[in-house]
Design a binder for these strands. Sequence first.
DNA 1: GACAAAAACGAACGGTCGTTCTATTTTGAG
DNA 2: CTCAAAATAGAACGACCGTTCGTTTTTGTC
Lengths: 206, 206
Amino acid sequence: MGSKGELTRQTVLEHAARRASQVGLEGLTIGRLADDLDLSKSGLFAHFRSKEALQVQVIDYAAERFVESVLRPALTAPRGEPRVRALFERWFLWPRAGTNSAGCIFVALAAELDDRPGPARDRLVQAQKDWLEFLANAFRIGIEEGHFSRDADPEQFAHDLYGIMLAHHHASRLLDDPRARERAHRAFEALLAAARAGAPRPPHTQ
Amino acid sequence: MGSKGELTRQTVLEHAARRASQVGLEGLTIGRLADDLDLSKSGLFAHFRSKEALQVQVIDYAAERFVESVLRPALTAPRGEPRVRALFERWFLWPRAGTNSAGCIFVALAAELDDRPGPARDRLVQAQKDWLEFLANAFRIGIEEGHFSRDADPEQFAHDLYGIMLAHHHASRLLDDPRARERAHRAFEALLAAARAGAPRPPHTQ
DNA sequence: GACAAAAACGAACGGTCGTTCTATTTTGAG
DNA sequence: CTCAAAATAGAACGACCGTTCGTTTTTGTC
């Protein structure tokens, strides 16, 4: 199978993903990528046949790595609350999995693509929906295990938890707040406490 | 005083801010702005003397408009919880204040600038710190008024509240989730409920 | 209404962009 | 080792980028 070609393609995607989390998908540049990797512009370009294709593949690559770095390892944690905690903890570590301390590429791309239609956005939306669904499901298992109240709403939990992650990203990366980690953990514990107490669903929701 | 010049400068900034919330500060283009506004490239350029100056002024412009659209109106609400609620409600409306239904420019720019040093980033950081401080202060007043527990942490509240806003932005703009508004409100009510009950500060924080 | 100041224009610059084409080198199966 | 296929290189393209400069038009004051 395409051994050499596939290998450089992966190398390019790894580097492109790292850069995209800093400069965005639109900020990616074929020439710059080629320079960084000591390839010719046309040589690199040949692996993808358009910039848009490269952008889409960057998202797919990041999604694969996210599964391997966050989702799959968390599955080794016991069902229920421990697994939810594992997902939370793994999420903080995962941007650093790629050597340098960049931000989460999905947070960066979400803001960039949220009003730019196209295949890249479609891929990102699917990845994010999968992630929220995964969170909701981990929480749902926690209900079955008796860790959380039966009145709690798994999708609301996933939504709120992701909000905590976004707030942490903001506080830690933009504001350089040294307490960001502590704030995120406190918010997380409060969310879990509410889930145990049984955050009531609103009375009139159809 | 600079009547005509200042007027077109404002027109340019208004349009640039709207575009920046879609394509980012780096995605802004002198030529495109000039076309949109029926100006010549050099004519528009003369108002700012570099692209970086334009970017900085866009942020300042957006910050001024945010104060007028969100902060100042909220001050007419009664001190304490009602004012906190007013801030929350106003925040949802404010991107739509500019005619079209773009996202919050600060959310877009936060992700773009969080790892790109420079004057634009510095301005954005200050604006965001001011905003969080304003939220914390509104909450602090709520404690004094007896609406919230004395044990609650105002800065933690501001952090958590902004997380709810970020999650809403994500759910509504990227995921097109029709329940986004409802989710945000539920999270907000839960946050207020916890603040009333007295979200306990962690035992060993110096 | 004259006239300096301010504002807007138009053309041009060097650079970089994504992309195409052709040529060269490298790979890997027989 | 052979040789087609795959991978990479190099040069060139038209388009647009931010910026500069000299000119023309518009503004507002006396």
